[in-house]
Nucleic acid binder design. Structure first.
Length: 620
DNA sequence: TCCACGGGCGCG
DNA sequence: AAAGCGCGCCCGTGGA
C-alpha cells in the first residue's frame, strides 16, 4: 500500500491513502531495516532541495512531502535503522544537508558494483536491478519531470516504487555475495560510502586569486611558444608550403599571424615533423624527446604540449568548478573502479599537477578554511610493500625490514654495482641514473612490461633490455614466481582477487570469448591484457582496499571523539584532512597511527610507513 | 551543431 | 600475432 504524507488538499484517489508522520515512524519502529529514497530539485545538495523522501518495504511505502512535514522528524529513525539505498551517496549528501546522518547502510548499487566488477555491459540502475532480481518492470520515464510536475499522483506512485523492491534485491544479491565470498568487501564499501558522501558534500577550498596567477603565467607561456613555433616554420625552407605568399589582414586592417597552423592538432604537428624528414609515427612525449636533437622544433613542441595541457586542464576554466553557494569545489567520486580504486571527477583531483615548481605551486592553491590546517598522510611505497608482502621475496622483504631504499638495493644487484654508485649516470642514457632505470623496472616489470617497451623507455637495445630483465628476476625470484602465478591465475580463471581479508573480485568480461577464440590474434591480445592486468590488479586493488579501510577508521575516530576534523580528499595512497589549528599537532599523530594500523590488516611482514604533514595548503 | 572516438597527458 | 597497470579530461577529427 502506498501512503502519502503531506498536503491534504491533494485529491485522494485509488492509488494511495493519506497517512501521518507518526504512523510512518510507528510502522518502522520495530523493523530492522527501511528502504529509503529521495526526490530532489537537482543534483547539488547545496543549491537544490529535497522534494520528498520515501520510506518503504515490500508491503508499504510512505511518500513524505518535506514541504509539508519536517524531515527532521525522521532523524532518529534514519540514524538508527539499517537503511537500504540505491546509490546511497546521492541521498546521503542531501540528508547531510538536513543534518541527518545514517549510520548503517546497505547500497544495492554498490553491491551490484562489487558483484560485477570488470564485467562488460553490466547494468547498475534500479530499473535493471528490479528486473534482474525481482522480474519487475519499473517505469523510470517520469524521473526527469518530477521537479516540474510536483507531487502528482503518478509521481507519488513512481516515488513509492523506488522503495518497494530494495529488500528483495538485497536478499537476492546477498545470496550471490555469499557465493562469491564478497561479504567483507561489500561491508567495506557500504561503510566507506558515508565518508565519500561527506567528502563530496564538504568539498575543498581553492584560492582563486593564486590560481589565476598561475593560469595567467601558463597562458602567456602558451602564446609565446605558439609564436616561437610559427617563427621556426617561417624560417625553415623545408616548411615553406605552410607559409602563405601574402600576409592577411583582418577586417580592421591589422596584420594577422602569418601562419594558420593549429599547434594543438596532433595530425598537423605530425605532418610538419615528417616534412622535416623526421620519421616518427606519433608526436607524443616519447617520440619528440627521442628525436630532440634532430630539429629545434622538437623541444618547442614538447614545451608547447606541456604548457597547453596546463592551460586547458588546469587554467581559468578550473575556477568554474567553485560552487557559488559554498565557494568550495564539490568533486564527485566513482567508488569502485575495476581494481577497487576510486576515481574523482568534475574536477579530477587525482591528476592535479604535483611535479616540479609549477606542480608545487598549483597544489598550494588548495587551502584549508580560516583557522584550520591541512593535515595529510601519505603511505610510502605502498605498492612495493604489497609486492614484498605477497611474494615474500627475501631480498625485497629484507630491504624494507632494514629500512633501506628498495630501488637502490635492487639497483645495485641488478646492475652489479655498489650501492653508493646507484645515482651514477648510466652509460646508455644521458642524464638518467641507474636508480632511475631501476624504478622503471620495478614499476614496469612488475606489471608485465616487455623487453621492447623497456628498451624503448630507457633507450637501450632490445638485447640489453632482455638481459636486464633476466638479471632482475634472477635477483628477486619470488617476485618473479608470484607475478607469474597471478598472471596465470587470471588467464586460467578469467578473474583475480585482492588480498585477504577483503578478497575483492575483478572479473574479465572478455575472457570467455577470448577462450572460445583461442588461436586468433584477437584472443592472443586479449589474454595478454588479462595476464598483465592480473599481475597489477591485486596490488593496485589491495592498496585501494587499505585506503578505504583507513578512511573508515579515520572517520570513525573523528565521529567518536567529535574531533574538529573533516576528511577532504583521498588520492591513491594519501588522505588529506582539514583540522582546526589548535588540534593539528595532536591530530597528525592520530592520523599517522590510524593509517598504519589500517594497512597492517594486509601488510604483516614489514613495517608500514606514513608520511604526515601539517600545512596551510595541499602539499606533496 | 552534436556526438563518438582516439591521441595525448595529468596523476598514482 | 602483441607485448607495464589503473584512471579522467582536453582537443581535433570525421561522420551524421
Amino acid at each position: 500500500m502506498i501512503y502519502f504524507i503531506g498536503n491534504k488538499e491533494l485529491v485522494e484517489n485509488e492509488f494511495y491513502e493519506f497517512s501521518t508522520i507518526d504512523k510512518c515512524i510507528d510502522y518502522f519502529k520495530d523493523k530492522e531495516s527501511i528502504e529509503v529514497d529521495t526526490e530532489t530539485t537537482g543534483f547539488d545538495p547545496h543549491t537544490c532541495k529535497i522534494i520528498c523522501i520515501q520510506l518503504g518495504d515490500k508491503e508499504n511505502q510512505f511518500v513524505i512531502d518535506v514541504n509539508a512535514v519536517s524531515i527532521l522528524l525522521l532523524k532518529e529513525l534514519l540514524e538508527s535503522k539499517l537503511i537500504l539505498f540505491q546509490n546511497a551517496k546521492f541521498d546521503l549528501r542531501f540528508l547531510y544537508s538536513n543534518d541527518i546522518y545514517p549510520t548503517k547502510i546497505y547500497d544495492t548499487f554498490l553491491a551490484e558494483c562489487v558483484l560485477t566488477t570488470g564485467l562488460e555491459d553490466r547494468e547498475l540502475g534500479l530499473k535493471a536491478l528490479a528486473w534482474k532480481y525481482c522480474g519487475v518492470l519499473l517505469d523510470k520515464e517520469i524521473r526527469g519531470q518530477i521537479y516540474r510536475e510536483g507531487l502528482s499522483t503518478r509521481v507519488i506512485q513512481y516515488a513509492a516504487n523506488d522503495v518497494a523492491y530494495l529488500h528483495l534485491i538485497r536478499e537476492k544479491q546477498l545470496v550471490e555475495i555469499e557465493k562469491l565470498e564478497l561479504n567483507a568487501v561489500l561491508d567495506l564499501e557500504n561503510e566507506v560510502v558515508k565518508v565519500f558522501a561527506k567528502m563530496e558534500f564538504h568539498g575543498i577550498l581553492l584560492d582563486p586569486d593564486k590560481w589565476m596567477d598561475v593560469a595567467k603565467t601558463t597562458e602567456s607561456n602558451v602564446i609565446n611558444l605558439q609564436l616561437e613555433l610559427d617563427e621556426i616554420v617561417l624560417n625553415e625552407p623545408k616548411l615553406s608550403k605552410y607559409v602563405p605568399k601574402y600576409k592577411q589582414t583582418d577586417l580592421f586592417g591589422f596584420e594577422k599571424r602569418d601562419l594558420d597552423i593549429n599547434w594543438s592538432s596532433n595530425a598537423q604537428k605530425l605532418k610538419i615533423v615528417k616534412d622535416l624528414g623526421i620519421n616518427i609515427d606519433s608526436v607524443d612525449e616519447r617520440n619528440l624527446s627521442k628525436n630532440k636533437r634532430k630539429h629545434i622544433i622538437m623541444s618547442k613542441l614538447l614545451d608547447y604540449s606541456k604548457q597547453a595541457k596546463l592551460v586547458t586542464s588546469f587554467g581559468k576554466k578550473f575556477l568554474s568548478f567553485i560552487n557559488p553557494k559554498t565557494q568550495r569545489i564539490h568533486f564527485s567520486i566513482w567508488q569502485i573502479l575495476s581494481t577497487g580504486r576510486i576515481s574523482v571527477s568534475e574536477p579530477n583531483l587525482n591528476q592535479i599537477p604535483s611535479k616540479g615548481e609549477l606542480g608545487k605551486k598549483i597544489r598550494s592553491c588548495f587551502i584549508p578554511k580560516e583557522g584550520y590546517s591541512i593535515v595529510g598522510g601519505d603511505f610510502s611505497g605502498m605498492e612495493l610493500r604489497l609486492i614484498a608482502e605477497f611474494s615474500q621475496d627475501k631480498l625485497w622483504l629484507d630491504a624494507f625490514n632494514a629500512g633501506q631504499d628498495l630501488h637502490s638495493v635492487l639497483c645495485a644487484k641488478t646492475f652489479d654495482i655498489s650501492i653508493t654508485d646507484v645515482k651514477q649516470e648510466t652509460p646508455f642514457k644521458a642524464g638518467v641514473t641507474y636508480r632511475d632505470v631501476q624504478k622503471t623496472i620495478n614499476f614496469g616489470l612488475a606489471y608485465g612490461m616487455s623487453k621492447f617497451k623497456l628498451a624503448d623507455t630507457i633507450d637501450i637495445s632490445v638485447d640489453q633490455a632482455d638481459k636486464i630483465i633476466k638479471k632482475f628476476f634472477a635477483v628477486v625470484p619470488q617476485v618473479n614466481s608470484f607475478l607469474n602465478l597471478l598472471g596465470n591465475t587470471g588467464k586460467k580463471n578469467g578473474q583475480i582477487r585482492t588480498a585477504r581479508p577483503f578478497r575483492r573480485l575483478r572479473q574479465f568480461g572478455n575472457w570467455q570469448s577470448a577462450m572460445e577464440n583461442q588461436g586468433s590474434s584477437d584472443s592472443f591480445k586479449a589474454l595478454g591484457e588479462i595476464e598483465r592486468a592480473s599481475k597489477n590488479s591485486p596490488i593496485q586493488g589491495s592498496n585501494g582496499d587499505i585506503i578505504k579501510l583507513a578512511l573508515i577508521n579515520v572517520q570513525n575516530r573523528i565521529d567518536a571523539n567529535n574531533y574538529p576534523v573533516t576528511i577532504i580528499l583521498a588520492v591513491y595512497d594519501e588522505i588529506q584532512t582539514e583540522c582546526r589549528d589548535d588540534f593539528a599537532e595532536e591530530w597528525k599523530l592520530i592520523l599517522n597511527d590510524i593509517m598504519i594500523e589500517s594497512a597492517k590488516v594486509i601488510i604483516k611482514s614489514i613495517p608500514v610507513e606514513v608520511d604526515c604533514k601539517i600545512s596551510k595548503s595541499w602539499t606533496k
